[in-house]
Write a protein that binds this DNA or RNA. Sequence first.
RNA 1: GCCCCCUUCGUCUAGUGGCCUAGGACUCCGGGUUCUCAGUCCGGCAACAGGGGUUCGACUCCCCUAGGGGGUACCA
Length: 531
Amino acid sequence: MVRTRFAPSPTGYLHIGGVRTALFNWLFARRHGGQFILRIDDTDQQRNVAEALQPILDGFRWLGIDWDEGPDVGGPYAPYFQSQRVERHQAAVQALLDGGYAYRDFARPDEVQAEREAAEREKRSFVYSRRWMAETARQQAAFEAEGRQSVVRLKMPRDGQCQFHDAIRGDVAFDWAAEQDHVIQRSDGTCLYHLASAVDDYDFRITHVIRAVEHLSNTPRQIFIARSLSYPLPEYAHLPYVAEPGSSSKLSKRKLKQYLKQRDFKALFDQGARIAAAARLPVTDETFNPVVVDFYRETGYLPDALINYLLLLGWSLDDSTESFTRSEMIDAFTLERVNRAPASFDPAKLAAFQERYARQMPIEQKTAMVLPFLHAAGLVREPPTERELAQVSAVVRAAGDRIKIAGDILDFADFFLPDDRLPWDRAAVEKRLVKPPRAAELLRQFANRLQAVEPFDSASLEGLLQRFVESEGIQLGDIIHALRVAVTGKAVGFGMFETLEILGRERCAARIARVLSQLEPGAGDGHGAVD
RNA sequence: GCCCCCUUCGUCUAGUGGCCUAGGACUCCGGGUUCUCAGUCCGGCAACAGGGGUUCGACUCCCCUAGGGGGUACCA
């Protein structure tokens, strides 16, 4: 039975690199019909664990990465919070002490530090002298009499090698002599991570430890702990980390400002920021960051697109397959095909996956996806009326591939605005309505013909415009751009006839009349104009 | 300092000694389509870190160098 785990600290946000690690654990467990466990690596000092954990759990749920055991769902090996397992950790420390695999050490930090520095000066690896090691009650009493405090250190081997197999890196070996007598329990009695982690992994019956490479060098000490406690060793797989765009350093939430200098990253962020502003999202600097999963949820990405992208960040099936459904990725995933080198997060490629998924989406689904954004912006009711729903659906259909992420619907907010509150793009008005000599006149004439057309749909509208162009002896472009600016306020939009049909006869007439009145000499008070 | 890991187009990658004049994808650059934009179609630019071996033959195996990363904490 395969059992994997992901062990987040309750930090208040879900890091995109963490998601990739969790995804690989999840896929591996699902691939082998096993369990995926969420263990919370909190510490006693942390406050508001529940609050700091919520965004992480929400993030996983949104992404469809479900856990079989852990917070909220419980499980046979509860508790799944590390802070509630201290008795188990303390017992393990005692067992290690009893077995002679660990010892009490009474060195002061500065004394160990002095040895460390001496080793560095002599260009050799540091090996603690164990001068303040107490293995008998008598030694212990003597040190205590000096007023010294103790920590518990691992009594690591000093000969031979620690060899183990890594599913991604192959056979790995470390000299035991290069390992330190690592501290496993502090002088205040609390335990350190590596001890706790090894114990919890055993207690939860974890069979495959799949984690980031930064733990590769830590593996020997965990193996030492496990062996000393007679635990069976799990299989190890060390994943390369997700690197920042254009560099091989680890992607970090704190370096947002630096990443924003990169064109693609900035484009991704700006698009999100535009949506957040239009939808009046209560964004915080804490989470409104493309390194954090919330960013994608808040701006309307598809979880499947994000997951598909992340799957291919450090893993591939072959030389050409890029699209994977959940079940396809579960069937295809193997640790052997995970890459060894770090992979840079590429916002442009993520965007490409998102666009591909959005393109294949049925209209009804896309409409549903877009509604919460229109509601947040105060443009439709919640739940929407029948009429609003039809309107939204029509806009979504006409927008086609222009809606790449759900929040993009707000680029077309002008369809949902009252006619007298439609903002005008001043430059567009200037270029298409003011500057061309006959623009206003043509628009007026065409508006008149609009009154009579029947039915008011794109086919008849197209015919009407065709005839108008012929009878006036003008080019299509002479009227169509002016018309677009008049009814949408903008120079760009979707197909003209669809636009007119969606707005309907009355609204088109109202908008054209309004813009014409503004164009009359002396009438322009600038009201309604923007930019 | 010491130990360990990594290194194919700008990016994600295929490649396990001859199938490689190194393939695909994203980006970028041309061009076609079109009422604008998005899209779409066609085409293009672009890589085996460097140096030594081994071999009839190296992107693939070995060594060295360089660069990048991690560990070396009473951090996780």
